[in-house]
Simulated assay, not measured.
Amino acid sequence: MLKSKKSRYVALSTAGVVLAGAAAGAAYAVVDNVKAPHTQAAATVRANGVVQNAKNIKSARRINPGEYCVTFSDTNLRVSRSILQATANMSNRILDVTWGNDYGCGSAQNVVKVVATNHNGVKADSWFTVSVH
């Protein structure tokens, strides 16, 4: 229990900043926790845009329902000249991976946009795995 009003104010302010960041689709720092010797980069991303497992991932974020931006750590990685693989980790989801445009993710050469839709073609949140070979 927080004893002083100042302590309660600081704690509530900090909680508000954290919640505001999550609601705004903030990108969070990612720690490499996967050994994949034949993969340049890979990530398992939760439906809320938080990375669960990663190798050479700078950030991931959910920008809209069913839309995610994944930024790879290597700024020299050209996704347009790589083999990309994306797999939905939820049933009844179809993924589309694009790059090189500015549909909410920018046009950097090391960024991809992942769009998940349901069987009716409506954008829907989904866990997914994306990798670069």
Rank of each mutant, 00 (worst) to 15 (best):
L84V: 14
V30I: 02
N64L: 12
R81A: 15
A27C: 07
N118W: 11
N110H: 05
Q85L: 09
G100T: 10
A22D: 05
A29L: 13
R81K: 14
V130S: 06
S107Q: 10
A47P: 05
V18F: 13
T71R: 05
A60G: 08
G66W: 08
S7N: 14
T44G: 08
A116D: 09
N101Y: 08
N110Q: 01
V111L: 00
G66S: 02
T75L: 07
T75A: 08
N53V: 01
N120E: 14
W127T: 08
K35Q: 14
I83V: 15
K58F: 08
T98Q: 12
I63R: 13
R61D: 10
C105P: 05
T71P: 01
A60E: 06
V114P: 00
I94L: 12
A41T: 07
K123I: 00
S82V: 01
T39H: 06
K58T: 03
H38P: 00
W99T: 11
F72R: 03
A23R: 12
Y68E: 03
A27S: 15
A23G: 14
V50L: 07
Q109M: 09
V17M: 07
L77Q: 06
D125P: 04
C69A: 04
A124D: 11
N110G: 07
L95Q: 06
W127I: 01
L77G: 09
T87S: 12
F128Q: 11
R81W: 02
L12T: 15
G25K: 11
K35W: 04
S91A: 10
M1P: 15
N92E: 14
A60Y: 05
N120A: 14
K35H: 10
H38D: 15
P65L: 05
T75P: 06
K5V: 11
S131E: 00
S82Q: 01
A26E: 07
G121D: 04
H119C: 00
A42P: 02
V30T: 11
V70H: 02
V31E: 13
D32K: 06
F72A: 03
N118H: 10
C105L: 05
N118V: 01
G21S: 06
R8H: 12
R46P: 00
M1N: 12
L19S: 15
N120I: 00
S131M: 06
K123T: 13
V51Q: 04
V10A: 07
S126V: 00
V97A: 09
